[in-house]
Design a protein around this nucleic acid. Structure first.
Length: 574
RNA sequence: CGGGACGUAGCGCAGUCUGGUAGCGCACCUGCCUUGGGAGCAGGGGGCCGGAGGUUCAAAUCCUCUCGUCCCGACCA
């Protein structure tokens, strides 16, 4: 492609709307333009990157035995009502009516459609395993789209859906997909890790997320340097140090006046001031939670934080929120900030850490009052569960020695064992080898295509712009002709360009009648990995300059060796 | 949905407090000049100041409403 014929509208300054680096650079490099919040057009350069990622995904999915299909973006409400998600999915599901007043939605995902398709076609265990994938636009009406392609409303996604006869067969398919994902992200040139994940609204039994490590990531990942354990913070477990200072002998419960002392820190500070020797570890905080309009008291050690995802999963709740002050007074009989487990008549659920505690401090369900020396016998706990949010430096739950480190990540892929959730709801069944009807066992496997592109840029850039990994770069080589009025330069540049093209190379030639500075700046910005500069001076000596965007080290190469040099870079993937 | 900010030329912004001719830089067009890191000179085009009401002799500027965008939070695969 000739630069002079291509639409690559680079910007010197980043538009005010962009916050994260990948968003800024994609706008500046002329890859994307916003049409509406969370909705983007792809310009030639952006589309080429998307296509490269898609190609890698297709190759690896096909290699893993999956087969591509294409499904409608517009989906009828009936299917969603049948699966139970029409009401459950919430406002993220963009709904509308057609001219006949029938309900439709824009597909945020395609479990319903694919399951409907498969239940009509699959009859026998002989028809499986089956693994179908699609790469297409999906629409989720996000409350807050942000960071460009990172969290758009309309976004391109690869989704695969697998159909197996039982859990064992699903396990095998799941393993293949896991391997395929490892290969895909590796081929995209990303630094990433696979971690255990919560299944969210998609549901299902187990799941892994593929996280690209980047400071701008919206997710937190806990990982162990020792044994390789990794999990999304929503899911992560940890072993906590037992507090040796807990006194063994139970003391008598005492009521103390604590005027206006509500937070954990305040209580510790207030009591520590001559009343009792207390740290946050010796305090049990009581959170009043409303889960699908049922109230629960949640007990946590004072210095721990509640992991709401863990609680939501344990309760099997749809919606979880903190009770407001009115509700707290109604439920506990006391003011907000003074809640405690003693005397409550709602279910009490405690974090496992509380089990090992004695003579602790709690609220007294009475304004300006706390209890000292509360013990587990003073109230009844319905369940002890792991509810705590993992912190940096916690001990690894898998191995003895490791310490968990918390880092930010961008979720580019997510694989789920769905089990029979959708196949049961939509009655997708088959006959097994003894003629009995069985429910199909499903899995689903997503990759955010645009998000992967954004993540790659988050990980590969410098002050000058993008540094594309070769396999997903819009072009592999940029031939930069410096002196456009110099016939020798232009002829040589075109010759190199044509020859590289003939070798199957994806090459862009900057033949614009622009000053050298502009061309170099644009070249840095759009980040094409291999650069060949043809200039009058060097050419007079019979050489051109070859450099890599990544290290910017320039090498003079004899004109006749240029093609070989470039091809060697490509063959070794730089 | 709660909190905050911003809508002025394609992009980045000033002007708004204190009402009185709509500006600057970049980009764009023409010419000269220049050609290894976003040059220089000269000339030029481009705006219903997001929209609608109101106050006023007069509104980008003050008031009310509305739409849009971005950030933080809640939410989310």
């Amino acid at each position: 492609m000739r630069y002079s014929n291509s639409l690559i509208p680079t910007l010197k300054e980043s538009p005010a709307e962009a916050e994260v680096i990948s968003h800024k650079l994609m706008l500046r490099a002329g890859m994307i333009r916003k049409l509406s919040a969370g909705i983007y057009s792809f310009l030639p350069l952006g589309l080429k990157v998307i296509r490269k990622i898609e190609r890698i995904v297709r190759e690896e999915m096909d290699r893993a035995g999956a087969e591509e299909v294409l499904m409608p973006a517009v989906q009828p409400a009936e299917l969603w009502i049948e699966s139970g998600r029409w009401d459950f999915y919430g406002k993220e599901l963009l709904r509308f009516k057609d001219r006949h007043g029938r309900d439709f939605c824009l597909g945020p995902t395609h479990e319903e459609v694919i399951t409907d398709l498969v239940r009509r076609e699959v009859r026998s265990y002989r028809d499986m395993p089956l693994n179908l994938y699609q790469i297409q636009a999906k629409f989720r009406d996000e409350i807050r789209p942000r960071f460009g392609l990172m969290r758009g409303r309309e976004f391109s996604m690869k989704d695969a859906y697998s159909f197996d006869i039982d859990d064992a067969a699903l396990g095998e398919t799941y393993g293949k997909m896991y391997e395929a994902y490892m290969r895909i992200f590796k081929r995209c040139g990303l630094k990433f890790c696979a971690v255990e994940a919560d299944t969210g609204t998609i549901g299902g039994s187990s799941s892994h997320e593929f996280m690209v490590l980047a400071d701008s990531g919206e997710d937190l990942v806990a990982s162990c340097g020792g044994c390789g354990y990794g999990a999304n913070i929503e899911k992560a477990k940890s072993r906590r140090e037992v507090d040796e200072a807990q006194p063994a002998q139970k003391l008598e419960r005492k009521e103390v006046s604590t005027p206006d002392v509500t937070s954990v820190e305040d209580v510790v500070g207030f009591l520590g001031n001559g009343i009792a020797d207390i740290t946050a570890k010796r305090l049990v905080k009581t959170l009043i939670i409303k889960a699908d309009s049922v109230f629960y008291a949640i007990l946590m050690q004072g210095d721990d934080e509640l992991n709401e995802v863990k609680l939501t999963n344990f309760l099997g709740a749809n919606e979880l929120e903190m009770a407001n002050s009115e509700e707290i007074e109604k439920v506990t009989g006391g003011a907000q900030g003074f809640s405690g487990p003693v005397g409550l008549n709602i279910d009490i659920i405690a974090d496992v850490a509380v089990k090992g505690m004695s003579n602790f401090v709690t609220g007294a369900n009475k304004k300006d009052t706390h209890f000292l020396n509360v013990n587990l016998g003073d109230f009844s706990v319905r369940d002890f569960v792991d509810l705590r949010k993992v912190r940096d430096g916690d001990v690894c739950p898998k191995c003895e020695s490791g310490v968990l480190k918390i880092t930010r990540g961008i979720e580019v892929g997510h694989i789920f064992k769905l089990g029979r959730k959708y196949s049961e709801a939509l009655k997708a069944t088959y006959l097994d080898n003894s003629g009995r009807e069985q429910v199909i066992t499903m899995g689903c496997y997503g990759i955010g295509i645009g998000r992967t592109a954004a993540a790659a840029i988050e990980q590969n850039h410098d002050d000058g712009g993008i540094i594309f990994p070769l396999p997903i770069a819009p072009y592999e080589v940029l031939v930069l002709a410096l002196n456009t009025k110099d016939d020798a330069v232009m002829q040589r540049a075109y010759a190199i360009y044509e020859e590289l093209k003939a070798k199957g190379c994806d090459v862009l030639i900057d033949d614009r009648k622009e000053r050298a500075g502009i061309k170099f700046k644009d070249a840095d910005l759009i980040g094409i990995p291999i650069r060949v500069v043809v200039g009058a001076k060097k050419l007079a000596e019979g050489s051109v300059e070859v450099s890599l965007r990544r290290d910017r080290e320039k090498t003079d190469v004899a004109v006749e060796d240029v093609i070989a040099k470039v091809m060697s870079y490509i063959d070794t993937r730089v």
